[in-house]
Nucleic acid binder design. Structure first.
Lengths: 260, 260
DNA sequence: CGTAAGATTGATTTCGGTCAACTTCAGTGG
DNA sequence: CCACTGAAGTTGACCGAAATCAATCTTACG
């Protein structure tokens, strides 16, 4: 990643109390100071992976939970004839459930798109974390549900949105997700993806992505250069994309309605 | 559903010990008789929904787990202008994690594609079920991972497979999934989906689905009529679709490699 | 300063969508 | 029993969005 501050390297606490993940979880379910403290400890074991390298956790504790502290990664699958599809984009604060490694053959690969810092919470430590705090447990559950919602929305985009809608939608989503972890301001955010990456995520050709972006630019909807995205007219862009951020931020209703 | 036997109505036990879900879980992690027994009890509370009706669990225990006992359903999302995308197909034995209902706004709908029978396991009962049997817990976890893998594969299909590959792939997947729950023989299975349903799942037009099916038929790859699918040349069909069933059946390695 | 990856643009093709008509079929009621 | 109805399936003619092919051009960086 070229373009943004070190992310987890904030200096508001001895061990990064304010990680992207902490921000996101806090938004989902208000964390106590104690929760934040223990989360920070759990995230303290970091690992670095350089850009374009595969992130392989084979041999790792399959119950461990990997968390992106800084940088971008993706989960992708390559077909026999070389066609490549990015299935998930992992941003700072995202949880990469490596339980997939319980399966014998890994069908997809995880790859760093930028230099990336990962925290690895061992299975046991993670279980203890959620066992001790119902709030943290709820927050992690909610995080997982959000991930699923994102996946569903990608399916909708690939199936039913046109190229321009789909592209606009993804950019809106990424901006919103980054904002939720404190890595974006109201109108702009880092955007380390190349047009090739975008094409692989959006199921299109790099050439066509280029034309779509030109189109979006010429409509004065956004600016995209120097690995940074600026939403010039966010409202119009979201309308074009049929983007409704609710699937990302829908707050947990635990405690509000159902108190079993 | 028109075309298959009542599914859960087998007579090999007083309360359906051999439900589709039991078969699937057993394949993932060998269940003890006791596991099967308690699973069957958990599934005993059934609910009927007629075809085309929405399956709404609002107000239900959000921690409850719904299981399809018989019939087909789908999760779909409709865009503001009416475009519709089926995001998930739910077959007998599939678990419909209604934790989504913890979120305030439901962004997608669940809809019965055929008359359908659902079992509802209350949250508490489900927790007890998995707490008492590590095998069942592992099996349910594996089930969830498989669901995720299917979702990923759909993303790949929609993004990178051509219309004919994508259609062939879905039909292969459905046949394989049905076989895993004992509802298909080696070469054929029920196929209650209309061409409109297929189009909505595959991100295409009904007209084009029709042409693709004609093409597949004319290549003597499959027969599809009377709501029944027959794979005439399964090997060639799977090759055309770039279909690798590993993502569905990859066995859990718990116990084989890692014995923490 | 040279090089390679990424970005951009034009010309052309193709896959899948759109529009419109027509057929088939299952279910319903006279 | 058959005529009616509406949904699903089928086909053709045509169109348009995105892919493909092929050059450049730009930029980052060693």
């Amino acid at each position: 990643m070229n373009d943004h501050s070190p992310g987890s390297g904030r200096s508001d606490g001895p061990i990064g109390l304010d990680s992207p993940l902490a921000r996101k979880l806090h938004r989902m379910a208000a964390l106590s100071d104690d929760d934040r403290q223990r989360l920070a400890v759990a995230l303290s074991r970091a690992r670095l992976v350089e850009a374009h390298a595969d992130i392989l956790a084979e041999g790792d504790d399959p119950r461990a939970v990997n968390v992106v502290l800084d940088g971008w990664a993706c989960r992708y699958r390559q077909l026999a004839d070389g066609r490549r599809q990015i299935v998930t984009l992992l941003l700072p604060g995202d949880v990469c459930d490596p339980q997939v490694f319980r399966k014998r053959h890994v069908h997809h690969a995880l790859c760093a798109l930028t230099p990336i810092t990962l925290a690895q919470i061992p299975g046991g430590a993670f279980q203890e974390l959620t066992a001790r705090s119902a709030t943290l447990e709820a927050a992690f559950l909610h995080e997982r549900l959000t991930t699923t919602a994102i996946q569903h929305e990608w399916t909708v985009s690939l199936g039913r949105r046109s190229a321009i809608e789909r592209t606009a939608h993804l950019l809106c989503e990424l901006h919103a997700r980054l904002e939720a972890v404190g890595l974006a301001d109201a109108v702009s955010c880092p955007m380390p993806l190349t047009q090739i990456d975008l094409a692989d995520a959006l199921g299109q050709t790099p050439v066509h992505i280029n034309r779509v972006l030109r189109d979006l630019r010429s409509q004065a909807l956004l600016i995209l250069r120097h690995r940074r995205l600026t939403l010039v007219d966010g409202a119009r862009l979201r309308a074009l994309a049929l983007f409704d951020p609710a699937y990302l931020f829908d707050d947990d209703i635990t405690g509000s309605a159902q108190e079993t």
